[in-house]
Design a protein around this nucleic acid. Structure first.
Length: 510
RNA sequence: GGCCCGUUGGUCAAUCGGUUAAGACGCCUCCCUUUCACGGAGGAAUGAGGGGUUCGAUUCCCCUACGGGCUACCA
């Protein structure tokens, strides 16, 4: 089985924003495929017509594209295994569902939702709060196992809605060799007769995942741990359909948990704690509600996938900053954790900061320009490159570039005079007035010359240069942050420097 | 309730029977810098509990506790 060419799939449901856990699943698929020179497939699991959301499929593609992990096959690249949307593969599922009925592994069930509800009510007890449709009750329900053949035929002839359910065997052990967890054993009595084909003719996940993984020749199936309890159904189906020998190896990924409390991370947690959960901004077409994404929050895609890869996996080296290629080289399933990991937004930001520091200013330029275009300022892109070099160590998110850069192009709007006022005196006022009126002495306007000149004058005036640098910074930047003042002065130019000094000098006189 | 999975500092985590139990994030102290960062040097902080197995258990087994997942004609 493992000698087959690796084919993996990411199979999201197009129902809304792409959750970080989904991206991680996609990423692990991608890395595994790259490592083994295999194929990464995107399959759209849109079998629930009631949950269809317009634009969600394109959005998923956009997210994967942004992350740089676009699949080799999928609805965006038609190929040998087209179509890749389950809604377009309907015929196939019905065929296999019928085959299962014919071979006695599945049956028709005519119970209405109301009847199902009644059954659950009737069998509900303290010791069994959620009764299942299983071997214990199925003979009391309306299905092709409990009903006479003629009645079944009659019901079908009269177009009575029905579903097809798998007939779970009695008291059998189903073993699954999970690549992450090892052997997991289930007793078939514990799992119910899952619906395989719904009344609307669409398959449920259980049937679709098996049929498609088979037809698309998937060799390794990654999915979240929440699927583990239903995996015996899938294993049985692979067997019943006669495909047992080509069943993919399963790998159930640990969940990504809330930072506080417990449970898996949800969109609500992000809203509540102020961080994104989706890869990119998601606008719900029905409600118009916008949910923030990592991209728009100022993350570099490299940092985002780097962070995700290290959530539940590590290569044991202690290194943490990896590019996509290195990740693909080092990725192995046996180093994926079993336990869930709580998401830590602080650490996520740290990854982004590392990637910003690591990136060249040229690479950062388009991102920064994008941030800056949100502002209405005159941009001189030529000037931008050296500025980025100067400030990038101070940015954790791409959005941080805005406050770090804006004062290079625009006089500060607010001046933090409070932090210099207490130590301000007439001598300092005189110094700055003298200094700006003597600036023509400066033949070249560069950081070094400005600094030298500034310090000479300071020494001459008898004031420690250190005591003058903070006021100078406040004058140019408006607050206590940013690179060396002299670099700032050099870039904004002599005129702006003088104008900003005069402006603050006036404020201080009042 | 039942079934399944899991459990090393606040968080991510290394260790694959013998270590002073790595490293990272965050936090704290100091240095650099009279800004903010970056960088550097330190610090506090961890094996859920109980039984075994073993000369020796964080590591292997069992029980308990705790956490999570599933228990839909949703995925």
């Amino acid at each position: 089985m493992t000698t087959r060419t690796v084919r993996v799939r990411f199979a999201p449901s197009p129902t809304g924003g792409l959750h970080l856990g989904g991206v991680r699943t996609a990423l692990f698929n991608y890395l595994f495929a790259k490592k083994h020179k295999g194929t990464f497939v995107l399959r759209i699991e849109d079998t629930d017509q009631t949950r269809f959301v317009a634009g969600a499929e394109q959005y998923i593609l956009d997210c994967l594209d942004w992350c740089g992990i676009l699949p080799d096959e999928g609805p965006h690249v038609e190929g040998k295994f087209s179509p890749y949307r389950q809604s377009e593969r309907k015929a196939s599922y019905r065929k296999y569902a019928n085959q299962l009925v014919a071979s006695g592994f599945a049956y028709y069930a005519f119970d209405t939702p109301e009847e199902l509800g009644k059954m659950r009510e009737a069998f509900k007890s303290e010791s069994n709060p959620s009764p299942q449709y299983n071997s214990k009750v199925r003979m009391q329900m309306k299905n092709s196992l409990s009903l006479d053949k003629e009645i079944v035929n009659e019901l079908i002839d009269k177009n009575t809605p029905y579903v097809i359910r798998i007939k779970m065997p009695n008291n059998e052990e189903v073993k699954l060799n999970d690549l992450i967890r090892g052997e997991v054993v289930f007793n078939t009595d514990q799992v119910d007769d899952k619906v395989l084909l719904k009344a609307d003719g669409m398959p449920t996940y259980h049937l679709a995942v098996v049929v498609d993984d088979h037809e698309m020749e998937i060799t390794h199936a990654f999915r979240g741990e929440e699927w583990l309890p239903s995996s015996p159904v899938h294993v049985l189906l692979w067997d019943y359909l006669g495909w047992k020998d080509s069943m993919p190896d399963w790998a159930h990924l640990p969940l990504i948990l809330k930072p506080d409390g417990q449970g898996k991370l949800s969109k609500r947690d992000g809203d509540r704690l102020g961080f994104p959960v989706f890869a990119m901004d998601w606008m719900d077409p029905k409600t118009g509600e916008l949910t923030k994404g990592f991209k728009e929050m100022g993350f570099l895609p490299e940092a985002f996938i780097n962070m995700l890869a290290l959530l539940g996996w590590n290569d044991g080296s202690g290194e943490e900053i990896f590019d996509k290629e290195t990740l693909a080289e080092r990725f192995t399933i046996d180093r994926i954790h079993k336990g869930g990991a709580k998401f830590d937004f602080e650490k996520a930001k740290w990854f982004n900061q590392e990637w910003i520091k690591k990136s060249t200013s040229e690479k950062l330029l388009p991102y920064v320009v994008h941030q800056l275009t949100k502002l209405t300022i005159e941009l001189d892109e030529e000037k931008l490159l050296p500025i980025i070099t100067l400030v990038k160590d101070r940015c954790q998110l791409l959005n941080d570039f805005v406050p770090q850069i804006i004062y290079f192009f625009k006089d500060p709007e607010t001046i933090d005079t409070a932090s210099i006022q207490t130590k301000w005196d007439e001598n300092k006022s005189i110094f700055f007035n003298d200094w700006i009126s003597n600036l023509e002495e400066l033949t070249s306007w560069d950081a070094m010359s400005i600094e030298t000149h500034f310090k000479e004058k300071a020494t001459a005036s008898g004031i420690k240069t250190g005591e003058l640098q903070l006021p100078f910074r406040i004058m140019l930047v408006g607050a206590k942050f940013g690179p060396t003042v002299f670099e700032i002065a050099a870039i904004i130019g002599k005129e702006s420097t003088i104008r900003r000094i005069n402006h603050v000098l006036k404020m201080l006189q009042q």
